[in-house]
Design a protein around this nucleic acid. Sequence first.
DNA 1: AGCTCTATGTATAATTC
DNA 2: TGAATTATACATAGAGC
Lengths: 172, 172
Amino acid sequence: MGRRKVRLELITNDSVRKTTFRKRKGGLLKKASELKTLCGVDTCAIIYTANDAEPHVWPSPEDAQRVLERFQSLPSKKQGKHMLNHEDYRPKDVSMLELKLENGIKRNQDLEMELLLLDHLSGKNVVDLIKDDEMKMLYQSVDDKIRDLTLQMANLKASEVEEDAHSTAPAN
Amino acid sequence: MGRRKVRLELITNDSVRKTTFRKRKGGLLKKASELKTLCGVDTCAIIYTANDAEPHVWPSPEDAQRVLERFQSLPSKKQGKHMLNHEDYRPKDVSMLELKLENGIKRNQDLEMELLLLDHLSGKNVVDLIKDDEMKMLYQSVDDKIRDLTLQMANLKASEVEEDAHSTAPAN
DNA sequence: AGCTCTATGTATAATTC
DNA sequence: TGAATTATACATAGAGC
């Protein structure tokens, strides 16, 4: 049969809900991709599945795929550098960022994105104070992760400087 | 007339592109909202307009609005604490996080979100190494922001400890 | 479980106001 | 401009593999 008018409420039947999720997730990402192409704006959709699976992200899986292939064809030394200290490496994220680079690097937009993400993080921490006990673990976890990140960046910088010192000519 | 088959490429005509953007942005957010409602997953769409305006976010502007109103009715002292050290306060972000809190705080989901955001940040930094000069500013900027953030968190913690010291009974 | 196949609900391109 | 209108393209609920 064809379709019925949909009632806007949580689908209780597990298998139906899962099917609907799969279909509509595809639709949403396609729409996001089209908006990006047609209007030349950066669009990003993030979908968190309730329990186990990874969150699904991005306007266009095909684009990501294409860029990922490019990444994989990079000289292996450079590839290694990309993964430096990344315990849980996610090609998806890297490829999306490469895509942004490819598209001509709109610095303002990148900065805005970064700001937005940091807003989320800092906002989260501040909001945590409302329900203290409940969120303490999360709070601590963010703190740890940021310490990690700072360390990672320090390492990256250090290895860059080291390279500069070894080469006589300045890198491009 | 009705609609024509759409060609998937950047719309060059400014006014047409703007109109299409407005329509499709609405459609996308509606879809995201429906997915959230029907499947009980957290969905987040972020749309960056090319130049001036803020990025448009969220599955459901109405929900955000409702939560924002709740936030604004909080005791003013608590409100002030929310804004602590936030030079560029964005109620939108806070309200989204409050929404998550209201919805019953799914800790795993929050942790996953946090991880995703940190992936973005760290991924960005790592990728920066590809096109060194071009991305140096951004790189530095992220570094600065994270230092800021760490400081903010330290301050928050310090003020929390201070409060604990002043009160005889332990907080909730 | 996930794919294909329709019938039908929705989104939206073009046009008007 | 932006909000309404209308004709059509597109998305997708339900059913069958």
